[in-house]
Deep mutational scan, measured.
Amino acid sequence: NQASVVANQLIPINTALTLVMMRSEVVTPVGIPAEDIPRLVSMQVSRAVPLGTTLMPDMVKGYA
């Protein structure tokens, strides 16, 4: 089972991601792979992401 990136806190719209905002977790459906966490740092979210939400490619500007 592949771990995905999950929000560790509420991430407001247009916030630049930092390591403390993200954790890896095995979830369904699968989201952005956990190994991409270093690449996500400083990228902005395109919408508010609630705590515990799996990050999907369309939620991060410039990821897809």
Score class of each variant (00 low, 15 high):
46 S>I: 15
24 S>I: 12
43 M>Y: 10
26 V>N: 10
25 E>H: 06
12 P>E: 13
45 V>W: 00
45 V>Q: 01
34 A>K: 05
21 M>H: 09
26 V>E: 15
10 L>D: 14
39 R>V: 10
10 L>H: 10
47 R>W: 06
41 V>S: 03
51 L>W: 12
4 S>G: 05
31 G>E: 01
54 T>E: 02
11 I>A: 00
14 N>A: 09
57 P>G: 11
50 P>Y: 10
3 A>F: 09
29 P>A: 05
63 Y>L: 10
4 S>A: 03
42 S>N: 08
26 V>S: 14
10 L>M: 12
59 M>E: 03
45 V>L: 11
17 L>E: 02
18 T>G: 05
40 L>E: 00
14 N>D: 13
7 A>H: 02
58 D>V: 09
64 A>G: 14
56 M>C: 08
52 G>N: 11
19 L>G: 08
17 L>M: 13
23 R>Q: 14
46 S>D: 13
29 P>D: 10
26 V>D: 15
13 I>D: 08
57 P>T: 10
6 V>Y: 01
13 I>F: 08
15 T>S: 08
28 T>E: 15
50 P>D: 15
32 I>W: 02
16 A>P: 06
32 I>S: 00
10 L>T: 13
61 K>C: 15
11 I>S: 01
4 S>F: 03
10 L>Q: 08
56 M>H: 10
19 L>Q: 10
22 M>P: 00
23 R>D: 07
57 P>I: 06
35 E>V: 09
16 A>N: 12
35 E>A: 10
15 T>G: 05
20 V>T: 13
64 A>Y: 04
8 N>C: 05
43 M>T: 05
56 M>N: 08
53 T>C: 08
15 T>F: 07
3 A>S: 15
4 S>K: 01
51 L>T: 12
3 A>R: 05
29 P>F: 03
47 R>P: 03
41 V>F: 06
23 R>K: 14
32 I>Q: 01
42 S>A: 12
9 Q>V: 14
39 R>I: 13
47 R>F: 05
59 M>R: 02
20 V>E: 14
55 L>P: 01
13 I>M: 10
32 I>C: 03
29 P>G: 05
62 G>V: 03
63 Y>F: 12
34 A>W: 09
2 Q>F: 10
30 V>G: 07
32 I>N: 00
30 V>F: 06
34 A>S: 14
52 G>D: 07
50 P>G: 10
59 M>V: 06
9 Q>K: 09
6 V>D: 00
23 R>G: 09
22 M>N: 01
9 Q>M: 13
42 S>W: 07
16 A>G: 06
63 Y>M: 07
51 L>V: 15
45 V>P: 02
51 L>H: 15
32 I>L: 05
24 S>N: 08
41 V>Q: 05
31 G>I: 02
9 Q>L: 09
12 P>V: 06
25 E>G: 11
36 D>S: 14
30 V>R: 03
55 L>D: 01
21 M>I: 03
33 P>G: 07
63 Y>T: 04
1 N>T: 15
32 I>A: 01
60 V>G: 01
16 A>H: 12
12 P>R: 08
60 V>Q: 01
45 V>T: 13
2 Q>S: 15
6 V>W: 01
4 S>D: 01
52 G>S: 08
28 T>R: 03
41 V>M: 05
21 M>S: 04
49 V>E: 02
26 V>I: 08
12 P>S: 09
32 I>K: 00
13 I>Q: 11
42 S>Y: 10
33 P>A: 13
4 S>H: 01
55 L>N: 01
53 T>I: 10
64 A>L: 13
26 V>Y: 09
40 L>W: 02
24 S>Y: 11
28 T>N: 11
14 N>F: 07
52 G>I: 02
27 V>R: 07
54 T>L: 09
27 V>Y: 03
61 K>Y: 06
34 A>H: 15
16 A>I: 06
25 E>T: 06
28 T>A: 14
37 I>F: 03
42 S>G: 12
19 L>S: 09
37 I>Y: 03
58 D>I: 12
39 R>W: 14
11 I>V: 06
21 M>D: 07
60 V>W: 01
60 V>F: 04
56 M>D: 05
63 Y>Q: 04
62 G>P: 03
27 V>G: 03
20 V>W: 08
56 M>V: 07
30 V>L: 15
7 A>C: 04
21 M>A: 06
19 L>H: 15
3 A>W: 05
40 L>F: 02
47 R>K: 13
48 A>W: 06
40 L>T: 00
41 V>G: 02
6 V>Q: 04
27 V>H: 03
28 T>W: 04
58 D>S: 11
2 Q>D: 15
8 N>W: 03
43 M>F: 10
59 M>L: 06
55 L>S: 01
5 V>Y: 00
20 V>N: 13
42 S>L: 07
25 E>D: 14
11 I>R: 00
20 V>G: 14
61 K>H: 13
24 S>W: 07
25 E>Y: 06
43 M>A: 08
40 L>H: 00
60 V>M: 04
8 N>K: 13
59 M>G: 04
54 T>P: 06
53 T>E: 12
47 R>G: 07
58 D>H: 06
26 V>F: 11
27 V>P: 01
5 V>H: 00
37 I>N: 01
26 V>K: 04
26 V>G: 04
58 D>T: 12
15 T>K: 05
12 P>F: 05
18 T>Y: 03
36 D>N: 15
54 T>M: 03
26 V>L: 12
62 G>I: 03
38 P>C: 05
28 T>I: 05
